[in-house]
Design a protein around this nucleic acid. Structure first.
Lengths: 192, 192
DNA sequence: CATTTACACTAGCGCTTGCTTGGTTACTCT
DNA sequence: AGAGTAACCAAGCAAGCGCTAGTGTAAATG
């Protein structure tokens, strides 16, 4: 069995699994469904993954790693003004969320299905990502761009953003960047 | 079997089911677990509910009915100023969400598990509730309290509110009304 | 008093689940 | 050519699943 390696085959399988997990939910997705989607038999699945849990962990890890990378890159590449950074962070969040959508929907809504070990490991990744947000929000508050309780503001903003996966239509007229601008405008009094 | 009645026993069972559905998720909650929580054997469960699906539908219906009632009452009882109504609606939403929490978490995160018939029936209830929101948001926009795309604004606000069930701690220092005020302040430029 | 109704029980059927076992194929590297 | 390995398959096990059938019993109803 392929322990913890990142073979291209395994990556592709992870992508397919993410799609099925979104479509059906983790619990309703059987190993037989996963195998069929991958074009193999259910027994062969366990050559690539130790068990079903590990597939879930792989999907979530993949998505969270990506989010972290994109957000860091976006922040590195932009100016130091709090407003620019805030907008960049919102854009980066939506970009990841809506392009790598399957993995993120799984991360958001199936996190509880992780066993404690995997959850502990992945929590660090998620914390690292949220730390970026805390920084950006704090700077924006200090600069007077937005106001309010830092904890509540960041929760509200992340909630509004994460919820987009429930209604956003990528074939509709609005781009992810449109959403980002609209949200920033909504919470920034100076935009009037 | 007790078809569609609303006996007090059934109401209590629905409440217990909601709790278990939140704890374990609908799919992982077995009829045997439900029965044990209710103090009966699994076979007896089907005297009260036609099948497992009907329990889910009962939980969601119960929660949505409550939300609709509370919101209507709140709007009826408050003044006509758009700002007052917006604040009242946000408060009502959070109040329902966080007191009748189990039912709403199920409604928000297990809706997809409903079979088409139940989903169609309950969609009307949810649409009635969302219509209240559309009204309030439209009035607030027209009065210049907030600005932006009416569709996006309402989605963002509802997203921020609904996401609270993922982090809000009822034993913490903040009351639901605190959250409501903070959110309204966040999106209303005039509050500075 | 006889009958119905509400609610619970026992027992288990038929099926699906995640996962294992033991073996085969195809390809690479020496 | 021979060894090693990654990828797969057929077959099936043990456990758990939703749900049904048939029965018992105490309270309400005629």
């Amino acid at each position: 069995m392929n322990v913890m390696n990142a073979s291209p085959r395994r990556k592709e399988l992870t992508r397919l699994a993410a799609q099925l997990f979104v479509q059906e939910g983790f619990d309703r997705t059987t190993v037989r469904m996963l195998a069929q989607e991958m074009g193999i038999k259910s027994g062969s699945l366990f050559h690539h993954f130790k068990d079903k849990q590990e597939i879930l962990a792989a999907v979530i890890e993949e998505g969270t790693q990506n989010a972290l990378m994109i957000a860091r890159k976006a922040l590195d590449e932009c100016a130091a003004e709090p407003e620019v950074r805030l907008r960049a962070m919102v854009r980066a969040h939506l970009e990841t969320l809506l392009t790598d959508r399957n993995a993120h929907v799984v991360a958001l809504f199936e996190w509880r299905r992780l066993d404690p070990a995997a959850s502990a490991h992945l929590s660090h990744l998620r914390d690292a990502y949220e730390a970026l947000w805390v920084d950006v929000i704090d700077d924006a508050l200090e600069a007077g761009l937005i106001h309010g309780d830092r904890f509540l503001v960041s929760r509200f903003v992340l909630g509004a953003l994460n919820w987009t996966v429930r209604w956003y239509d990528p074939n509709g007229p609005r781009s992810p960047d449109d959403l980002a601008d609209e949200l920033v405008a909504m919470i920034m009094p100076t935009s009037a």
